[in-house]
Amino acid sequence: MKRTLRQFTGRRPPVLIDPELLAGPGLLDELSGLRARVPHLTGSLVATTDGLVVAHDTRGLEPSGVAALTAAALGVGARLAEATGQGEFRELLTRGELGYTATYAAGSFVVLTLLAGPDANIGRLHLEARRAGRRIAELSDAVLARQDRD
């Protein structure tokens, strides 16, 4: 089953996704693995494209607020990519004075958002996040496929 992120630029997902269904030990393992592999990573979060938190590894931060903002930024990013003829949404990188916020597509209806300090190696961040995104996509698409069948 190959659904694309284009769907959330206009259409809603066919079913409302329950974030609790997607959350599993596999996801948390992915997030703690990222923290171990990427120096200067300060937090990570998996959310649905509707802005609901699925799993997070953050400290001193309100994950639900970040997930909601991610969904809003994602909508704009996806429309921008499409309007300029660049196709489906892949990732979004914001650089602030004190660090980075990066959001990566992870399958059809799930995104991975990472927070990193100003000294982060962005090449490394992209590399690890894209790999983790593919694995998270597999995990969540499998859950959604099961849900579709039921």
Partner: peptide, 30 residues
């Protein structure tokens, strides 16, 4: 040619399936 503040390559040439130069850029930044 790699920027070691960001770990991103400004330009690459050559490489192969076994040698991804963008991965090399990120790794060698460290």
């Amino acid at each position: 040619l790699v920027d070691y503040n960001s770990g991103m390559a400004l330009g690459t040439l050559g490489g192969s399936a076994e040698l991804d130069l963008n991965v090399a850029a990120a790794g060698n930044t460290d």
